[in-house]
Computed example of a mutant assay.
Amino acid sequence: MSGSSVDGQVVVVTGAARGVGALLARTLAARGARLVLVGLEPDELQNVTESLGGDAAFWTADVTDRATMARVAEEVVARFGRIDVVVANAGVATGGPFLDSDPDAFDRVIHVNLLGSIATARAFLPALVASRGYLLQIASLAAITPAPMMAAYCASKSGVEAFAHSLRAEVGYQGVAVGVGYLSWTDTDMVRGADEDEVLREMRAKLPWPANRTYPLEPAVERIAAGIVRRSPHVYGQWWLRGMQPVRGFLPSVIGGVLGRREMRRAQPALARGARAKRGLVGSGGAADEAARSSDHHTP
């Protein structure tokens, strides 16, 4: 597989109905890639697919469903003949104090972000071994540093980072490259949904620069696309995230110590006002995930 271009390569992107996944699909298609989109929202996926032109295609699937993902991988290979790149991007989020969290929403974040990424790798890795391809796991700043009110998301993204690093060590000798993509707060439905929560919004605003701002989507996705072309082991959606790696060992003490305690103490009045509010999955993607599971549950 060429390390300098994605022209003509078959690229699978999960969580491709919106946000990072949708724009990444468009960016890679513009570079000549043949796109396969996977997600839960058929109408949105169709819209993105039609915007790509060429022989792009989409499959509706829940990434946590191992059997379905295995079938999708087989059908993609049958249609396109090969798979060169897989981007495990599907993800959801919830926020709020752990003890007040909705257990189902909390667990769903772990299931989609971590177990869904594992199911994606399990389904598509044989094809990547055959093509000596590239797997990019989208992680987050949340994998580098912990954050109060985001226990589920931080745990899931730390998990996928560790999973990808372990997988890289296993499959490198077979010619498969594995990368981890890191994004800070980026202008997506998920982040806008999180900002609808007063406490999360105010706590994020008090983070030290440059972690306290929302970054535009397009430059972040361009950086991810460039990392895919290079088959990079680490891809940073914002330039400053690279500099977080050398100091990440100190961050749990800082966040869990004075800073975290101070901000949680300040947040108590607002948390008390919203104590009875349901804290489900955030953003349009979270709503789509809940709707899809509700529909499956009620299907006779």
Results as ranks from 00 to 15, higher is better:
residue 3 G to F: 06
residue 4 S to G: 14
residue 9 Q to K: 08
residue 12 V to Y: 00
residue 20 V to C: 05
residue 35 L to Y: 00
residue 36 V to N: 00
residue 37 L to E: 02
residue 37 L to A: 01
residue 39 G to I: 03
residue 41 E to I: 00
residue 50 E to L: 14
residue 52 L to Q: 05
residue 53 G to I: 15
residue 53 G to N: 14
residue 65 D to S: 09
residue 68 T to D: 10
residue 74 E to P: 03
residue 74 E to R: 06
residue 76 V to G: 01
residue 77 V to R: 15
residue 93 A to I: 10
residue 105 A to F: 01
residue 106 F to R: 02
residue 117 S to P: 04
residue 121 A to M: 12
residue 122 R to H: 15
residue 124 F to A: 00
residue 126 P to A: 06
residue 130 A to I: 02
residue 135 L to T: 06
residue 137 Q to P: 04
residue 141 L to A: 11
residue 143 A to T: 04
residue 144 I to H: 03
residue 144 I to N: 02
residue 144 I to S: 01
residue 152 A to N: 08
residue 152 A to Q: 07
residue 152 A to T: 05
residue 158 S to P: 03
residue 162 A to H: 08
residue 164 A to D: 07
residue 164 A to N: 07
residue 164 A to C: 11
residue 165 H to K: 14
residue 172 G to A: 13
residue 181 G to A: 13
residue 182 Y to H: 07
residue 184 S to K: 04
residue 184 S to Q: 04
residue 188 T to S: 14
residue 190 M to P: 14
residue 194 A to C: 05
residue 198 E to Y: 10
residue 201 R to D: 07
residue 205 A to I: 13
residue 224 I to K: 08
residue 240 W to T: 12
residue 242 R to V: 13
residue 262 R to K: 10
residue 264 M to L: 15
residue 271 L to Y: 06
residue 271 L to E: 11
residue 272 A to G: 10
residue 272 A to D: 15
residue 272 A to R: 15
residue 278 K to H: 15
residue 280 G to Q: 01
residue 281 L to C: 08
residue 281 L to S: 06
residue 283 G to V: 12
residue 285 G to M: 10
residue 285 G to S: 10
residue 293 R to L: 09
residue 294 S to W: 14
residue 299 T to I: 08
residue 299 T to K: 09
